[in-house]
Design a protein around this nucleic acid. Sequence first.
DNA 1: GCAGAAAATGTAACGCGTTCTACCTCTGGA
DNA 2: TCCAGAGGTAGAACGCGTTACATTTTCTGC
Lengths: 217, 217
Amino acid sequence: MTEESAMGAEARKRPVAQSPGSGLKPAQRARYLRIVDSAKQLASEGGYDAVQMRAVADRSGVALGTVYRYFPSKNQLLVVAMVTQFEEVGEYFSGADLPGDTPHERIMGVLRASVSRLEQDPRQYDALVRAVMFADASSAPELDRLGQVLTELFAKSAGIEIVTEEVLNAVRIVADVWMSTLVAWANGRQSAEGVLAHMDTAVRLVFDRLERLQRAG
Amino acid sequence: MTEESAMGAEARKRPVAQSPGSGLKPAQRARYLRIVDSAKQLASEGGYDAVQMRAVADRSGVALGTVYRYFPSKNQLLVVAMVTQFEEVGEYFSGADLPGDTPHERIMGVLRASVSRLEQDPRQYDALVRAVMFADASSAPELDRLGQVLTELFAKSAGIEIVTEEVLNAVRIVADVWMSTLVAWANGRQSAEGVLAHMDTAVRLVFDRLERLQRAG
DNA sequence: GCAGAAAATGTAACGCGTTCTACCTCTGGA
DNA sequence: TCCAGAGGTAGAACGCGTTACATTTTCTGC
């Protein structure tokens, strides 16, 4: 909806979500980050169920009430964790020019990298993906932020400068397929290779059309 | 992976899931259906949180332990409920020839009908969608069944007789976008019109390509 | 019919997310 | 320097998903 500068190390816009843990004093920001980090660690170790709020509090060296001061629920905490993970991926790929001659190839490069991340820590991503998909309306800002991070990532990987409405729609479709496929991967109905094969089809579909449109227009 | 006949009114294959509550004696089948129905009712009334296992048991006139004999968890119960809802939609559209001259138009007809169903009972579908997306590996059979119902629905609506691998892939992409979009709708990030607009883009994308392929091949 | 198995019942108990309460400890402004 | 209030702490308590169990009811094969 509202346009984005599509990068900007410092976010300072009010209308929509920004990188989490921003307007906090140092000590608070440290606590905030420790809590998110503990959640990720516990997720890595034992998946969604192992992320127990008491355990998060313990590991963060913080009282249970404090966890709830920063995050209104376990699920929102995990959604924030997911956002930070994808932000990391986004930053990782933000500078470099990606190899590959077509948008399709470049996006698939990013996806291959992402899938290998998933495979290194299946429990964690199982927990995060399920939390994101389970999230209710109260997580809407974080979910919007996640969508924004994803679409930016794909749009940038594609190497498309002018992000028209057409491009945005296309990229959103790729992101949707990506999330659905992650769910299938998380609950074991789809292998890592299956994920990549499926995404390959989807990306080809979407960007074939874009190329045609751009050649025509 | 394993191919599907992609229709067949009666499912009788062992490898994957079949319509739920099949191999039960009448009294048991009745209980089973009453439980699923109670869950749907409670979901309609108060969403995911209102589907409380004790309440389901009460309303079904059954002991709590009995609910757990039939369904290993609240979430699986809701997944089954979701499957039955989409089976209903599938049956509704199974006989009739759909209006519309192109696959795109016919599928959009089905989607418009589905969205209006959602709008009539947002709480219920919020609960069901979230349950499906939250499901873990133990619900894999039911989720496969759901995927099968969805792809059959879309393939049939499209009016494509020979379901090639190509067609299957395409339809799966539509189904993926559909599920992701339902999630966005469920947590209030996307309006009903937004859902339809987005699906319109996706369906056009996928079936434009199929038409070209079929004209070419 | 009937013995034994399977299914259903009612109820208690446990675990974890979430809330609440009472108390302590910083921090920043007069 | 002091104090008021936000922020932090410890721990109890509550609700609901889930499990366990003793008992009763309903099937099934003989």
